[in-house]
Structure formats: structure tokens, C-alpha cells
């Protein structure tokens, strides 16, 4: 069998990229049609999905990628972790300085500042009173009023596709925070601090919810991942599946020894799956221990 057409021409027919005249000529030739069918069959075979990854391996790959996203970015490089931190910061700021809170703070400050004037001047010097009110209005406006804060936040939200945009938005927020520092002396400070504590608590819970196992192909691979910032202390210890595999006594002993903390991971140690405790020590070194018997690994 010899087709009068080249395989490149026939391959174009397979991909639907040949002109109709060529297609007709190919169809009119038994040899060309036979070869075309072979190429089409090859294309379909290659297009058949190969055997998928095991569910366990699939989950560990995704978990490893998520762990990398949590990593602190190298200097000057944006990362999802940085972006996420900014998002939390933004939420904290907007929650803390919501229009309602700002309005209440402004009203209280206004009363606190105007009252002495009214008492000392007994209402006789209207010019002084008017001037004072004007200064307060300006002060509130400069202090990053609710509208200004929202603008900064909206600007950040609008720049979703660019971390550079986020950076500038974050700068705006920081500026807003500094400007709003003038409000710290207001009587609502305590309430605001309580709000901030609540927000911090929410952020911590959120981080715990995202805790997951990190999988590496070897002890060395795991240490390399730590080196790259892919694993951070205390990031994975709340995963119940991992906790169930850990010897509590081992964890207590290592907790006493490790500062700033521990992390847990699963590794493939010469073909054997092993849950390990990673210690993070003050001098920046890391050591791996078997989570069951506390023996050093690697």
C-alpha cells in the first residue's frame, strides 16, 4: 500500500486543517484512505487518557502544591502566601474601620472636643467655635475617613490579577492605618482592640483549617522543601489524620527541644511511607524524627 499523499498532508486531514479539495482526493484514493485511518487511529490512541494517579498520590501532589503556596516568598517576590496575608490584613482593616465604627468614633471625638469650648466660652465666642469645628472636620478627613479607607480597599480588590497592584493597594492601606493612628486616642479604642483580637482569632482558626500533610519523595527532598520555605513550623500539626499517627510522648519531648516549633510530614523513605516530625531549631537547622518511635530519620 502506497498512498499518493504525504503523511503531513494526511495528518492535516486528521486535524481538520486540509482544504476540502485535498480531503476529496484522499477519500477517492483507497490507499490514502487506509493510511488516513491509521493516522487517525494513532491520534485517538494517544488521546486516550493513561491510567490515572492513585487517589493517595493525587491528594499528596495537590497538598504539596498548596504547601508551597503557603511558603513565605523570597525577598522581592510576590507569592500567594503574601497575597493571602494582605487579604487578611485588608479584611482586618476594613472590619476595624468600618463606616459605622468610624462614624461613632467621629461623633464621640466631636463631642469631646466641642464640649470644653462650649463650656469655657459660654456660647459668647461663635467665631472660635466655628473655627474649632472646621479644624475637627479637616482632621477627620485627613485621618483616613471611612470613604478613603474603602477606596484603598476597593483599589486592592480591583487589582486582583496583579500582585504589583496589590502591593500598591497594601501601601495605601498602610498609609490609611498610619493616618488613622490619630484615632487611637478616641474612647472607642478598647472596642476596636477587641475587634482586632477577634479578627486575629479568626485568622488563626482559618490557618488551622488549612493544615494538611506534606508529602515528599525522600528525607532529603523534605529538607530541601523546608529550605525553600515550603514547610513552616506549626503549619501541619493540627491535621487529625497525622495526629493519630504520632506518638504523643515523642511530640512532647520534641516540642520541648524545638524552637520555634515542629511540623509533620509524610515521606517515602526507601519505598516505606513514614510520618516524620520535623524540628525547627533556633540556629535554623531542621532534623527529622520518626513520629512513632522518635528515632532520627535520614
Amino acid at each position: 500500500m502506497t498512498s499518493p499523499f504525504s503523511d503531513e498532508q494526511l495528518s492535516a486531514v486528521v486535524d481538520g486543517l486540509a482544504d476540502p479539495e485535498l480531503v476529496q482526493r484522499v477519500q477517492a484514493s483507497p490507499d490514502a484512505s487506509a493510511r488516513l485511518e491509521q493516522l487517525r487511529a494513532v491520534s485517538e490512541l494517544v488521546g486516550t487518557s493513561p491510567a490515572p494517579a492513585t487517589a493517595e498520590r493525587r491528594a499528596s501532589s495537590i497538598a504539596a502544591a498548596l504547601a508551597a503556596a503557603e511558603a513565605v516568598a523570597p525577598e522581592g517576590v510576590s507569592s500567594l502566601a503574601v497575597a493571602r496575608e494582605k487579604a487578611v490584613e485588608r479584611k482586618r482593616f476594613t472590619d476595624r474601620f468600618s463606616p459605622q465604627v468610624m462614624a461613632a468614633a467621629a461623633a464621640i471625638l466631636l463631642v469631646a472636643l466641642i464640649t470644653p469650648f462650649l463650656i469655657s466660652n459660654s456660647g459668647s465666642d461663635t467665631t472660635a467655635s466655628d473655627t474649632a469645628t472646621g479644624e475637627i472636620s479637616t482632621s477627620l478627613s485627613d485621618a483616613g475617613g471611612a470613604d478613603g479607607s474603602d477606596d484603598a480597599t476597593d483599589s486592592a480588590d480591583d487589582s486582583d490579577r496583579s500582585f504589583d497592584g496589590d502591593d500598591s493597594a497594601a501601601d495605601s492601606i498602610d498609609s490609611g492605618s498610619d493616618a488613622s493612628a490619630a484615632m487611637e486616642a478616641a474612647p472607642t479604642d478598647e472596642a476596636m482592640e477587641e475587634d482586632a483580637v477577634e479578627n486575629d482569632s479568626t485568622a488563626d482558626t482559618s490557618a488551622d483549617d488549612e493544615a494538611r500533610i506534606f508529602f515528599s519523595n525522600s528525607p532529603l527532598g523534605l529538607l530541601a522543601a523546608i529550605e525553600q520555605g515550603g514547610i513552616l513550623p506549626n503549619l501541619f500539626v493540627s491535621d487529625p489524620e497525622i495526629q493519630s499517627t504520632v506518638n504523643p510522648e515523642c511530640l512532647v519531648d520534641l516540642t520541648d527541644a524545638a524552637e520555634p516549633g515542629l511540623a509533620l510530614a509524610e515521606i517515602d523513605n526507601d519505598g516505606v511511607r513514614q510520618v516524620v516530625v520535623i524540628t525547627f531549631e533556633e540556629d535554623g537547622t531542621n532534623t527529622l524524627f520518626d513520629a512513632g518511635d522518635c528515632s532520627p530519620v535520614g
Binding site: 494517544v46 493513561p50 490515572p52 494517579a53 493525587r58 498548596l66 503556596a69 502566601a81 496575608e85 496589590d166
Partner: peptide, 29 residues
């Protein structure tokens, strides 16, 4: 993608989960 770029880990996980199989298939081939 936009949510993930803004630090939403849940969206990132959905995105990775959604595309894992096709990417793995290409890697396998």
C-alpha cells in the same frame, strides 16, 4: 484564579483539583 491570586486557598485547591488529572495525563504520556 483571581481568588487564588488574592490568597484564597480554597479556590486554589479547587483549581488544582480540577486540572490535576489532565496535567497528570500529559505528564504520563
Amino acid at each position: 484564579i483571581r481568588a487564588a491570586q488574592d490568597g484564597d486557598m480554597a479556590s486554589l485547591e479547587i483549581l488544582l483539583d480540577r486540572h490535576h488529572d489532565r496535567l497528570r495525563a500529559v505528564c504520563a504520556r
